[in-house]
Amino acid sequence: MEKLQQIRQTLEDIDARVPDALRVALGLGYRVSPTPAPGEDDDVADFAASLLQPPPTTEDGAGLDADDSGPTEPDAATSLAPTIDWASCYVPLHDHDAHFGNAKAGVLGVADGVGAYADYGVDAGAFSRGLMTSASVEVAGQEPGAHVCPSALLQRAYDETAASGATGASTAVILSLAGNALDWAYIGDSAFVVLRDSKIVFLSTPQRHLSRTTRAKLRFASTEARRKQHLFSSRDPTFQLSAKAVNSDRVSDAKSGQFAVRTGDVVVVGTDGLFDNILEEQLELAVQMGTKLGFSPKNMADIIAGVAYERSKQTRSRRLRKGKPDDITVLVAFIVQFDL
């Protein structure tokens, strides 16, 4: 797990990584280069539009879709196995977030300390750091090639952290690549999303102790997108893990499952500081443009964190509630293949 001084980046550094083309495409207010006068060509906007063009057509004129991109299973003759190429970006505000990643094991994790504990003079990041440190050490000690079960790993990390007497409480999400499947377990509102061909194909749903009002909103939500918007914007308390049984949900309450992935998929993992402050279409556009520009996972993590940070500063919006200043942790993993 990276130390804070290794992953801390000034907000100016992050802001400088967001090129004007992305700023225009994602609707991020001001831009670095001057806006052209009315009637003049806008090279930045034209470049942004070119990056968002649909896939090229084939010789017979038909467009390529996701099913035309090749086999979803590795070809046995090429002896390829899926793995991850990942990087992170952390924008601390209260410094309650923690994370880790292990490319060889194909495992990622994020945790978010519950900030309310800081009001009582408690280190609100202690439990999140304990969870991720314990999980990282456990994964590093696994036999090469051994599969890591996210639920079991979360349980072991919780047991060790609770036994240590760590203060506070935390949400958490752990992902583990197993062949062509992504195993996952999470508790609370730390979340992850899988994008394929720059479109969201899976987004985890926050766990909250819902009020009667929120339950009514969910019951009458017209679409699944509206349901998720209510859940992400809700101020109802999240599920959380703590050493104190009276304030803690159980690891057995965590959601878990498996999702089939393939080479070229992009996985984005983050705390609520990310998902409270970014629109799904903004995330898709950032991944689409980053893919076209050949971004590394680090480039993409920086860009996504920059978008979330700018949104967190907004006091009003026609599309969302006002931004939510918070720690922002972003992990980006490319599903890639390597020779066995």
Rank of each mutant, 00 (worst) to 15 (best):
D13F: 12
D15M: 06
V24A: 06
L26N: 03
G27P: 03
G27K: 13
T35M: 13
P36W: 10
P36Y: 11
P38M: 11
D46N: 10
D46W: 13
L52G: 09
G63A: 14
D68F: 07
T72D: 13
P74R: 04
S79M: 14
L80T: 15
D85W: 05
Y90G: 07
H96C: 13
G109L: 10
V110L: 11
D112K: 04
D112Q: 00
A126S: 09
F127R: 06
M132Q: 05
A146F: 11
P150A: 02
S151E: 11
Q155I: 00
Q155F: 08
D159V: 14
A162L: 09
A163T: 14
G168P: 05
A169Y: 07
T171V: 09
A172T: 03
I174E: 02
L177A: 05
L177I: 13
Y186G: 03
I187W: 04
S190V: 01
L195G: 05
T205R: 14
P206R: 02
Q207C: 09
R208V: 09
H209F: 14
R212N: 12
R212A: 15
F220Q: 06
K228W: 07
L231N: 08
R235V: 08
F239I: 02
A243K: 15
K244Q: 14
K244S: 15
V246L: 15
S248E: 14
S248W: 01
R262E: 12
R262I: 01
G264S: 10
V269G: 03
L274F: 02
N277D: 00
I278S: 00
I278T: 02
I278W: 08
E280L: 13
M289A: 08
T291Y: 05
L293M: 04
F295I: 06
S296Q: 13
K298D: 04
K298R: 12
N299Y: 03
A305S: 03
Y309E: 00
K313C: 07
V332F: 00
F338P: 04
